[in-house]
Design a protein around this nucleic acid. Structure first.
Lengths: 334, 334
DNA sequence: TTGTAGGCGTTATCAG
DNA sequence: CTGATAACGCCTACAA
């Protein structure tokens, strides 16, 4: 425990144990061609000097950093922390460390982060950011950094993806509701920064309505519980009629539900609410929120598994689809 | 966009633009002593060749990685994602990238992660993990990596901390409740992996009871909503009496509340619930959960600000205390 | 203002 | 089995 000394280098270890640095290198890399005796000797001085190899120098020499760059819009959503959890679990197994690149839902930032990931010299990247277009992503592969893209279907030589099947299910749910007696006007609750997925869902919603010769509408909400809640308290007090709301997140769904209940409306008889990106909080609420669900933890694991294979040039199917599941709980009728 | 070619190096840029690599280095580091003309020339070939400096080589040469190691027990809690958010925000301002080291609440893992952080050659570390003891943390500083420890008061040459004031407030809340007419038996809801903070809170709870010549009890819960919910559904059906519950997390609090309501008990008249680590979900519930609160986003920002200063040897006060706040909502009486 | 050369801490390829 | 020695890609005195 030499305090505040400069880093001990492999060279000092070599000298201190009377061997060449090549031998020390062999020992720390667990190579076989070293006598048990010298190995012991070297390990002893390593322990004595408290030597730790510099991952930096190793990386420079081997051209492998064991770091994975992760591009996300923000760390502050439950579904993203789920994703991160899945990623970290799988990464740890494989000996990778995650480096976080946060874009704040901003396109220029996002592009800059792609640059940063490239200079960062990671072994691979996970990209979960709606601001990035395909060409931005491809620039990555031109620098030879393999990447798995989440929530966007794109496949290239060094690029794979994990994408989500939501539209079909949403259309089915809506069609089913419309063709049943259950006949409420449908409102889609957009949100700033909703991103590609939510936009696609909105389109799906309108498409199925058009197909069935119906109309639906959209309300743009603030991406916070409190403001949306206040908005809907007013909304329902002026407007005590039935409705079916498709919320982009749990927090938005909760806001609508609580506002409706407070105005004496019944959930789900008067007001139905469906959350698109359901998290574990959906079933902690009373009433429990009906939601569409994809297990982001599994998505994270799968993405990292795929990336590992892609890095080894061993990934067969470069695109993998997660189907979402409709979990009917207590805020929808059927 | 040369496809899948090897990385362009500074040397190639130098040759291609007819200068020495030193000059190129000066250009990419925005040093002043370069003619506007040659700067332009070099920048042009950099763009043409698509050159990106290797952060790795730069780091090795300068002995600065611009990476910060972050040790956390898991990515999968709301309060940790809040913390991460605060950390990333501040880190970005300062040009740092976060590398995640996850311990899974496991002491051996945690120690290993400390090793990994050291070999990782980060410029500094944020440590938020209850498994680590002071001596583990100090080993960091003996390798000259500055660190800010969260939720543990420890100060050294190269170590600062951000710690939380919870006990005092909890004792006050309990004492207040006991001395009022409001007189329910108090139960502390422990949880596996609760960690140092929760253990301290439990102790505080017992201490204040002892001081007032009262008794309290503990129930150990599973760290999941569902199991705890089921447990308390049985509990309350056998046991329809009043009680005051101190829950270690929002999800535990929700489980108790929902189970109580379902058994016809009134909240907060029969059953009161206080959540220790309140998140934004506390006020989305109906009834809204009374909780103790510390803004982990602010904690993250503060910690990173401090670390930045510590790295520059410029941190005055190495310990900073966040006081928690009692937010009385709808699940407690006073 | 620009170029030369040594160094950062490893790995890897050769000989021996 | 072990030891020189040349990379790895960049920074930085020091010289020119």
């Amino acid at each position: 425990m030499n305090n505040l000394k400069d880093r001990v280098t492999i060279y000092e270890v070599a000298k201190a144990s009377g061997v060449s640095l090549a031998t020390v290198s062999r020992v720390i890399n667990h190579q076989s061609n070293v006598t048990e005796e010298t190995k012991k000797k070297v390990n002893a001085t390593i322990a004595r000097l408290g030597y730790k190899p510099s991952a930096l120098a190793q990386a420079l020499a081997t051209n492998r950093t064991t770091h994975i760059g992760v591009i996300i819009p923000s760390a502050n959503y439950v579904y993203i922390s789920n994703l991160l959890y899945g990623l970290t679990e799988s990464a740890k197994e494989k000996g990778f460390v995650l480096s976080l690149f946060v874009t704040n839902h901003n396109k220029d930032e996002a592009k800059k982060m792609v640059e940063n990931v490239i200079t960062s010299h990671v072994d691979g990247a996970i990209i979960f950011d709606d601001e990035l277009e395909d060409k931005d992503i491809e620039s990555m592969s031109s620098y030879n950094v393999p990447a798995i893209v989440i929530n966007n279907k794109v496949v290239e030589e060094k690029i794979g993806c994990v994408y989500f099947g939501y539209e079909h299910l949403l259309k089915k749910i809506i069609a089913n509701m419309i063709t049943n007696k259950n006949n409420k006007p449908i409102t889609f609750l957009q949100v700033e920064n909703g991103g590609r997925l939510i936009n696609r869902m909105e389109k799906a919603c309108y498409d199925i309505h058009e197909l069935l010769n119906r109309k639906c509408s959209t309300i743009s909400c603030h991406d916070s519980y409190q403001k949306t809640y206040e908005y809907f308290k007013k909304y329902f007090s002026k407007n005590k009629k039935k409705g079916y709301f498709i919320a982009s997140r749990d927090s938005i769904a909760m806001a609508v539900i609580n506002a409706a209940l407070e105005n004496g409306l019944k959930v789900p008889n008067d007001v139905e609410v469906l959350s698109i990106i359901g998290t574990k909080y959906a079933h902690m609420m009373a009433p429990q929120i009906s939601s569409m669900h994809i297990d982001l933890i599994e998505v994270g694991k799968k993405a990292m598994d795929m990336l590992d294979l892609l890095i080894k040039d061993n990934l067969k199917d470069k695109a993998y689809k997660f189907e979402s599941e409709y979990i009917k709980r207590e805020t929808t009728l059927d």
